[in-house]
Design a protein around this nucleic acid. Sequence first.
DNA 1: GTGGTCTAGACCACT
DNA 2: GTGGTCTAGACCACC
Lengths: 117, 117, 117, 117
Amino acid sequence: MEFDHKVPIYIQVIRDIKIAIIKGQIGLGEKLPSGRDLALQYKINPNTSSRIYKELEQEGISFTKRGLGTFVTEDQQKLIEIREELSEGLFDNFIFGMKEIGYQKDEVIEMLNKKYK
Amino acid sequence: MEFDHKVPIYIQVIRDIKIAIIKGQIGLGEKLPSGRDLALQYKINPNTSSRIYKELEQEGISFTKRGLGTFVTEDQQKLIEIREELSEGLFDNFIFGMKEIGYQKDEVIEMLNKKYK
Amino acid sequence: MEFDHKVPIYIQVIRDIKIAIIKGQIGLGEKLPSGRDLALQYKINPNTSSRIYKELEQEGISFTKRGLGTFVTEDQQKLIEIREELSEGLFDNFIFGMKEIGYQKDEVIEMLNKKYK
Amino acid sequence: MEFDHKVPIYIQVIRDIKIAIIKGQIGLGEKLPSGRDLALQYKINPNTSSRIYKELEQEGISFTKRGLGTFVTEDQQKLIEIREELSEGLFDNFIFGMKEIGYQKDEVIEMLNKKYK
DNA sequence: GTGGTCTAGACCACT
DNA sequence: GTGGTCTAGACCACC
């Protein structure tokens, strides 16, 4: 994975993990790599791993068992929440931004159709 | 104007000025406030004002006449460019993001229709 | 029993056993489960069981007979000691904490009365 | 300030700051010391300061202005929340614990009266 | 000067 | 082996 040096690494990795979860590449309840392994995988410092897992835990996406490791929550509801959080953010940003620069619904949709080709 | 303290103030002000220009609230060739006035208007640090004008000038959106102040370019072409730059950024971010979290074109457009209501 | 993963499991189990003892659910002189059984009961690692018994023994609450197992002390005095140790800890923590955040005796007792309803 | 080496420094400092706020020693909206200064005051590492402010921000107790510093929230409501959070935690822990080891309301209040002398 | 991020590396407690 | 905490020190963007 290549990092965009304009946005914090930990943010990018968190996003990456969230996407892996909602795509089912990482199952609910599954063990996540140890902090050290995550550091190796993404070529980051173990401290950064630790920060990543801490944030995920705070969002209720993972939890940790002392001495055992970090695990994905088993709460199915979370899956939906994550997906919504991610898409919601994209929609809001997009729609609000387009309004701000003066585009109406119809124009936006027409342009979107073109862009998607 | 309220700032989101997570994103640089100068970025937010630049965006604000660009939007005012493409909406015609600030006309082509029109004089922009002095750095000091800009600082007062937005309640920002004068250093930040000067950074803002420096960036706007670099993008060809404004130019300065020594002793007279800073003016918006008279180049109409710029208007279109700004609009495109802003919308381009929004589209890329949106489309790329939606792909990443697994939404296809049709779903996106359907959801967008709903959101716009 | 559900564990709070923020506090060491062995601490939680030790507390649980102490409470069982002072409540008489486990009698003085009674045999405690083998390390292996304890591990099964609490769904913990056998290593953790052995740590638990080691600590209990150190506090004089249990003792081991080689080849026979671990037993609760027969010393009645211990019962009182345990109870005091536990309640002492609770009182100190509570009173000190309430002082720190600025509550006086009378307020504390009044609030306590309310909470108990 | 002396630290209890059994509980994380950042937790203790956070508590200390919260108490200073609810006691009015630090006013609402007031600037907190810079991360570096906090580190000097408490004799901790600047990284630890940074962690402390991050947590406070997450709890809505402080906010940060880039390049300017960290400030206490101006929301009066927060004051009450903090006080409640702190006292609530103490009460719950105390009452639940005393119940667990078999003390009834009257005994508890009587003992508390004695302890307070 | 101010916070934000990251690396490096250490030590500890828990399982 | 696993996470949690802390120190040390660096670099950066922002104001």
